[in-house]
Simulated scan of single mutants.
Amino acid sequence: MYTTVSKKKKPSSEVALGTDVIYSNVATDATNEPNTTGEDADMCTAVSKKKKPLSKVTLGTDVIYGNVATEATNEPLSPDAGGKINAASFLCTGESESVKTLKNLAVKRGGSLTIPCFYDEQYKSNPKYWCTGKYWRICGVVAYANTRGRTSVTDYPTQNMFTVELNSLQDSDSGYYWCAVEIGDKWTVDDSDYLYLTVSADPAVSVINSRVSGQEGGSVSVQCLYRTDYKNKQKQWCRFRDWSCLTSQNSAVQISDDERGSVSVEMSGLKKSDAGWYWFSAGEVEVTVHLTVTERPTSKITSIRNTAHIC
Protein backbone atom coordinates (compact mmCIF):
# COMPACT_ATOMS: atom_id res chain seq x y z
CA MET A 1 0.00 0.00 0.00
CA TYR A 2 1.30 3.42 -0.90
CA THR A 3 0.74 6.20 1.57
CA THR A 4 -0.27 9.64 0.40
CA VAL A 5 1.89 12.65 1.15
CA SER A 6 0.28 16.05 0.70
CA LYS A 7 1.89 18.28 -1.93
CA LYS A 8 1.89 21.24 0.40
CA LYS A 9 2.63 19.50 3.68
CA LYS A 10 5.83 18.13 5.07
CA PRO A 11 5.81 14.46 6.14
CA SER A 12 6.53 15.18 9.78
CA SER A 13 6.77 11.75 11.29
CA GLU A 14 6.68 8.10 10.34
CA VAL A 15 4.15 5.69 11.75
CA ALA A 16 4.96 2.07 11.09
CA LEU A 17 2.01 -0.12 10.15
CA GLY A 18 3.09 -3.63 9.31
CA THR A 19 5.60 -3.30 6.50
CA ASP A 20 4.20 0.04 5.34
CA VAL A 21 5.18 3.48 6.52
CA ILE A 22 2.39 5.99 6.90
CA TYR A 23 3.19 9.64 7.15
CA SER A 24 1.36 12.03 9.39
CA ASN A 25 1.21 15.57 8.07
CA VAL A 26 1.29 18.64 10.24
CA ALA A 27 -0.60 21.64 8.95
CA THR A 28 1.25 24.90 9.28
CA ASP A 29 0.31 28.52 8.95
CA ALA A 30 3.71 30.05 8.28
CA THR A 31 3.16 32.59 5.53
CA ASN A 32 5.47 35.39 4.51
CA GLU A 33 4.76 38.34 2.29
CA PRO A 34 6.93 38.57 -0.81
CA ASN A 35 9.81 40.98 -1.04
CA THR A 36 8.05 44.12 -2.31
CA THR A 37 10.93 46.55 -2.43
CA GLY A 38 13.46 47.33 -5.14
CA GLU A 39 13.98 45.16 -8.21
CA ASP A 40 12.13 42.16 -6.80
CA ALA A 41 8.94 44.19 -6.43
CA ASP A 42 9.05 45.06 -10.13
CA MET A 43 9.52 41.39 -11.00
CA CYS A 44 6.41 40.37 -9.07
CA THR A 45 3.77 43.02 -9.70
CA ALA A 46 3.23 43.37 -13.44
CA VAL A 47 0.64 41.23 -15.20
CA SER A 48 1.14 39.96 -18.73
CA LYS A 49 -0.38 37.19 -20.82
CA LYS A 50 2.13 34.57 -19.71
CA LYS A 51 3.06 35.86 -16.25
CA LYS A 52 1.27 35.56 -12.96
CA PRO A 53 1.27 38.34 -10.30
CA LEU A 54 2.11 37.26 -6.79
CA SER A 55 -0.18 37.82 -3.85
CA LYS A 56 1.43 35.63 -1.20
CA VAL A 57 4.07 32.93 -0.88
CA THR A 58 3.88 30.24 1.77
CA LEU A 59 7.24 29.47 3.31
CA GLY A 60 8.49 28.56 6.78
CA THR A 61 7.44 25.06 7.75
CA ASP A 62 4.75 24.77 5.10
CA VAL A 63 6.58 23.04 2.28
CA ILE A 64 6.05 22.32 -1.35
CA TYR A 65 5.86 18.59 -2.07
CA GLY A 66 9.14 16.76 -1.85
CA ASN A 67 11.18 19.56 -0.27
CA VAL A 68 12.28 20.32 3.26
CA ALA A 69 11.01 23.54 4.76
CA THR A 70 13.37 26.51 4.87
CA GLU A 71 13.12 29.95 6.32
CA ALA A 72 12.33 32.94 4.12
CA THR A 73 15.50 34.31 2.60
CA ASN A 74 16.56 36.50 -0.27
CA GLU A 75 18.90 33.84 -1.64
CA PRO A 76 18.01 32.22 -4.97
CA LEU A 77 15.87 29.09 -4.73
CA SER A 78 18.44 26.50 -5.78
CA PRO A 79 19.60 23.23 -4.24
CA ASP A 80 22.26 23.38 -1.56
CA ALA A 81 24.97 20.78 -0.97
CA GLY A 82 22.38 18.46 0.55
CA GLY A 83 20.05 18.75 -2.41
CA LYS A 84 17.55 20.96 -0.57
CA ILE A 85 15.91 23.94 -2.18
CA ASN A 86 16.12 27.14 -0.17
CA ALA A 87 12.81 28.97 -0.44
CA ALA A 88 12.91 32.56 -1.65
CA SER A 89 9.98 34.94 -1.68
CA PHE A 90 10.98 36.61 -4.92
CA LEU A 91 10.39 33.60 -7.14
CA CYS A 92 7.06 35.29 -7.80
CA THR A 93 4.83 32.24 -7.70
CA GLY A 94 1.51 31.87 -5.93
CA GLU A 95 0.36 28.67 -4.32
CA SER A 96 -1.58 26.43 -6.65
CA GLU A 97 -2.90 22.89 -6.47
CA SER A 98 -4.25 23.11 -10.02
CA VAL A 99 -0.90 22.38 -11.71
CA LYS A 100 1.57 20.01 -10.07
CA THR A 101 4.99 18.57 -10.78
CA LEU A 102 8.10 17.57 -8.85
CA LYS A 103 10.45 20.14 -7.37
CA ASN A 104 14.10 19.08 -7.58
CA LEU A 105 15.13 16.87 -10.50
CA ALA A 106 18.58 15.59 -11.47
CA VAL A 107 19.90 14.18 -14.73
CA LYS A 108 23.26 13.14 -16.12
CA ARG A 109 25.04 15.38 -18.59
CA GLY A 110 24.19 14.41 -22.17
CA GLY A 111 21.15 12.46 -21.02
CA SER A 112 17.41 12.85 -21.42
CA LEU A 113 14.57 13.37 -18.94
CA THR A 114 10.80 13.30 -19.22
CA ILE A 115 8.85 15.41 -16.74
CA PRO A 116 5.11 14.86 -16.16
CA CYS A 117 3.01 17.92 -15.35
CA PHE A 118 -0.48 17.29 -13.94
CA TYR A 119 -3.40 19.68 -14.12
CA ASP A 120 -7.03 19.94 -12.99
CA GLU A 121 -9.89 18.52 -15.04
CA GLN A 122 -11.05 22.07 -15.84
CA TYR A 123 -7.86 22.66 -17.86
CA LYS A 124 -8.28 19.80 -20.35
CA SER A 125 -8.79 22.09 -23.34
CA ASN A 126 -6.45 24.91 -22.26
CA PRO A 127 -3.12 25.44 -24.05
CA LYS A 128 -0.14 24.04 -22.10
CA TYR A 129 3.44 25.26 -22.28
CA TRP A 130 6.91 24.92 -20.76
CA CYS A 131 8.98 27.93 -19.86
CA THR A 132 12.25 28.75 -18.14
CA GLY A 133 13.45 31.43 -15.75
CA LYS A 134 13.80 32.05 -12.03
CA TYR A 135 11.15 34.77 -12.13
CA TRP A 136 7.68 33.82 -13.31
CA ARG A 137 7.15 37.41 -14.38
CA ILE A 138 9.86 37.08 -17.05
CA CYS A 139 9.69 33.34 -17.68
CA GLY A 140 10.53 32.63 -21.32
CA VAL A 141 8.32 30.17 -23.19
CA VAL A 142 10.41 27.26 -24.53
CA ALA A 143 7.68 25.18 -26.17
CA TYR A 144 3.91 24.76 -26.37
CA ALA A 145 2.09 21.45 -26.16
CA ASN A 146 2.30 19.09 -29.12
CA THR A 147 5.57 20.50 -30.44
CA ARG A 148 8.69 18.46 -31.18
CA GLY A 149 12.38 19.23 -30.97
CA ARG A 150 15.13 19.15 -28.36
CA THR A 151 12.28 20.01 -26.01
CA SER A 152 9.05 18.16 -26.78
CA VAL A 153 5.76 18.87 -25.01
CA THR A 154 2.87 16.41 -25.34
CA ASP A 155 -0.59 16.87 -23.85
CA TYR A 156 -2.66 13.88 -22.67
CA PRO A 157 -6.09 15.37 -21.87
CA THR A 158 -7.60 11.99 -20.95
CA GLN A 159 -4.98 11.70 -18.20
CA ASN A 160 -5.05 15.38 -17.12
CA MET A 161 -1.33 15.52 -17.80
CA PHE A 162 1.26 16.81 -20.21
CA THR A 163 4.85 15.65 -20.45
CA VAL A 164 8.01 17.58 -21.23
CA GLU A 165 10.81 15.58 -22.84
CA LEU A 166 14.25 17.17 -22.59
CA ASN A 167 17.08 15.74 -24.68
CA SER A 168 20.89 16.09 -24.91
CA LEU A 169 20.98 18.02 -21.66
CA GLN A 170 24.07 20.02 -20.70
CA ASP A 171 25.20 21.73 -17.49
CA SER A 172 24.01 25.05 -18.90
CA ASP A 173 20.45 23.66 -18.98
CA SER A 174 20.38 23.61 -15.17
CA GLY A 175 17.91 26.07 -13.70
CA TYR A 176 14.28 26.87 -13.03
CA TYR A 177 11.48 25.62 -15.27
CA TRP A 178 7.71 25.90 -15.16
CA CYS A 179 4.80 23.66 -16.15
CA ALA A 180 2.14 26.16 -17.20
CA VAL A 181 -1.46 26.30 -18.38
CA GLU A 182 -2.77 29.27 -20.32
CA ILE A 183 -5.99 30.39 -18.68
CA GLY A 184 -7.42 33.11 -20.89
CA ASP A 185 -6.74 36.48 -22.48
CA LYS A 186 -3.73 38.70 -21.78
CA TRP A 187 -5.25 40.06 -18.56
CA THR A 188 -5.98 36.63 -17.07
CA VAL A 189 -3.53 34.93 -14.74
CA ASP A 190 -2.03 31.68 -16.04
CA ASP A 191 -1.58 28.70 -13.71
CA SER A 192 1.79 27.03 -13.13
CA ASP A 193 4.14 25.04 -10.95
CA TYR A 194 7.93 25.27 -10.96
CA LEU A 195 10.87 22.92 -10.55
CA TYR A 196 14.64 23.12 -10.39
CA LEU A 197 16.68 20.94 -12.76
CA THR A 198 20.32 20.05 -12.11
CA VAL A 199 22.40 18.65 -14.97
CA SER A 200 25.83 17.29 -14.00
CA ALA A 201 28.38 14.60 -14.74
CA ASP A 202 27.59 12.89 -11.43
CA PRO A 203 23.92 13.48 -10.54
CA ALA A 204 22.68 12.93 -7.00
CA VAL A 205 20.20 10.32 -8.24
CA SER A 206 19.63 8.48 -11.52
CA VAL A 207 18.07 5.31 -12.91
CA ILE A 208 19.51 2.72 -15.29
CA ASN A 209 16.31 2.72 -17.36
CA SER A 210 13.78 5.54 -17.12
CA ARG A 211 11.19 3.52 -19.06
CA VAL A 212 10.41 -0.05 -18.05
CA SER A 213 7.68 -2.51 -18.97
CA GLY A 214 6.17 -5.76 -17.71
CA GLN A 215 3.24 -8.06 -18.32
CA GLU A 216 0.09 -8.34 -16.25
CA GLY A 217 0.71 -10.69 -13.36
CA GLY A 218 4.46 -10.45 -13.90
CA SER A 219 7.14 -8.33 -12.32
CA VAL A 220 9.49 -5.50 -13.26
CA SER A 221 12.69 -4.21 -11.68
CA VAL A 222 13.98 -0.63 -11.58
CA GLN A 223 17.62 0.00 -10.71
CA CYS A 224 18.07 3.36 -8.99
CA LEU A 225 21.45 4.93 -8.26
CA TYR A 226 22.51 7.58 -5.76
CA ARG A 227 25.75 9.36 -4.94
CA THR A 228 27.71 8.21 -1.91
CA ASP A 229 26.99 11.47 -0.08
CA TYR A 230 23.30 10.49 -0.23
CA LYS A 231 23.86 7.15 1.50
CA ASN A 232 22.12 8.29 4.70
CA LYS A 233 19.30 10.16 2.94
CA GLN A 234 15.81 8.71 2.99
CA LYS A 235 15.06 6.71 -0.16
CA GLN A 236 11.50 6.67 -1.53
CA TRP A 237 9.61 5.08 -4.42
CA CYS A 238 6.57 7.16 -5.30
CA ARG A 239 3.79 7.25 -7.87
CA PHE A 240 2.19 10.28 -9.48
CA ARG A 241 -1.27 8.77 -9.75
CA ASP A 242 -2.11 9.60 -6.14
CA TRP A 243 1.10 11.40 -5.08
CA SER A 244 1.96 8.65 -2.63
CA CYS A 245 5.27 7.14 -1.54
CA LEU A 246 6.81 4.03 -0.06
CA THR A 247 9.90 4.06 2.12
CA SER A 248 9.71 0.37 3.00
CA GLN A 249 8.65 -2.71 1.09
CA ASN A 250 5.30 -4.45 1.03
CA SER A 251 3.91 -7.55 -0.67
CA ALA A 252 3.77 -5.90 -4.11
CA VAL A 253 6.85 -3.68 -3.98
CA GLN A 254 10.26 -4.80 -2.74
CA ILE A 255 12.78 -2.01 -2.06
CA SER A 256 16.37 -3.04 -1.44
CA ASP A 257 19.22 -0.59 -0.69
CA ASP A 258 22.72 -2.06 -0.88
CA GLU A 259 24.01 1.08 0.92
CA ARG A 260 26.75 1.37 -1.71
CA GLY A 261 24.88 3.63 -4.10
CA SER A 262 22.18 1.37 -5.55
CA VAL A 263 18.51 0.79 -4.74
CA SER A 264 16.54 -1.97 -6.45
CA VAL A 265 12.78 -1.58 -6.71
CA GLU A 266 10.88 -4.69 -7.78
CA MET A 267 7.15 -4.53 -8.47
CA SER A 268 5.38 -7.90 -8.70
CA GLY A 269 1.83 -9.04 -9.48
CA LEU A 270 1.52 -6.20 -11.97
CA LYS A 271 -1.92 -4.88 -12.89
CA LYS A 272 -2.90 -2.60 -15.75
CA SER A 273 -3.68 0.06 -13.15
CA ASP A 274 0.00 0.05 -12.10
CA ALA A 275 0.99 1.60 -15.42
CA GLY A 276 2.01 5.24 -15.35
CA TRP A 277 4.58 7.62 -13.92
CA TYR A 278 6.69 7.08 -10.80
CA TRP A 279 9.70 8.72 -9.24
CA PHE A 280 12.63 7.70 -7.07
CA SER A 281 14.09 10.12 -4.56
CA ALA A 282 17.06 10.25 -2.22
CA GLY A 283 16.63 13.08 0.22
CA GLU A 284 14.94 15.84 -1.76
CA VAL A 285 16.39 14.99 -5.19
CA GLU A 286 14.19 13.11 -7.65
CA VAL A 287 14.24 11.28 -10.97
CA THR A 288 11.24 10.06 -13.00
CA VAL A 289 10.39 6.57 -14.26
CA HIS A 290 7.58 5.42 -16.57
CA LEU A 291 6.05 1.93 -16.28
CA THR A 292 4.14 0.24 -19.11
CA VAL A 293 2.04 -2.84 -18.28
CA THR A 294 1.08 -5.04 -21.22
CA GLU A 295 -1.61 -7.70 -21.38
CA ARG A 296 -0.59 -11.24 -20.66
CA PRO A 297 -0.62 -13.30 -23.88
CA THR A 298 -3.54 -15.71 -24.02
CA SER A 299 -2.80 -19.26 -25.07
CA LYS A 300 -5.05 -20.55 -27.80
CA ILE A 301 -5.58 -24.24 -28.40
CA THR A 302 -6.40 -25.07 -31.96
CA SER A 303 -8.06 -28.41 -32.41
CA ILE A 304 -7.61 -30.23 -35.65
CA ARG A 305 -10.44 -32.48 -36.63
CA ASN A 306 -9.53 -35.44 -38.69
CA THR A 307 -12.26 -36.11 -41.18
CA ALA A 308 -12.54 -39.42 -43.01
CA HIS A 309 -13.59 -39.18 -46.59
CA ILE A 310 -15.28 -42.23 -48.04
CA CYS A 311 -14.98 -42.50 -51.77
Rank of each mutant, 00 (worst) to 15 (best):
T31M: 04
N32C: 09
P34A: 10
N35Y: 06
T36I: 13
T37E: 15
D42W: 14
V47D: 14
S48W: 10
S48C: 13
K49T: 14
P53N: 11
L54E: 09
L54P: 05
S55V: 12
T58D: 03
T58H: 12
G60W: 00
D62K: 06
D62C: 15
Y65E: 06
V68P: 09
T70P: 00
E71W: 12
E75I: 06
L77K: 11
D80P: 01
D80R: 15
D80W: 15
A81L: 14
G82L: 09
G83D: 04
K84N: 13
N86C: 04
A87L: 13
S89H: 07
C92H: 01
C92L: 02
G94H: 12
G94P: 07
S96D: 14
E97T: 14
E97N: 11
S98M: 03
S98Q: 13
S98K: 11
V99K: 02
K100R: 11
K100W: 04
K100S: 15
L102T: 06
K103R: 12
L105K: 02
L105D: 04
A106I: 00
V107I: 04
R109M: 12
I115A: 05
P116E: 00
P116G: 07
P116H: 05
C117Y: 08
C117R: 10
F118I: 12
S125E: 15
N126C: 15
P127F: 03
C131R: 10
Y135L: 08
I138E: 15
C139Y: 08
G140T: 14
A145Y: 06
T147V: 09
G149V: 05
S152I: 03
S152A: 12
T158G: 06
T158Y: 09
N160M: 03
T163W: 00
L166M: 05
S168G: 04
Q170Y: 00
Q170K: 04
D171L: 14
D171T: 15
S172Y: 05
S172R: 13
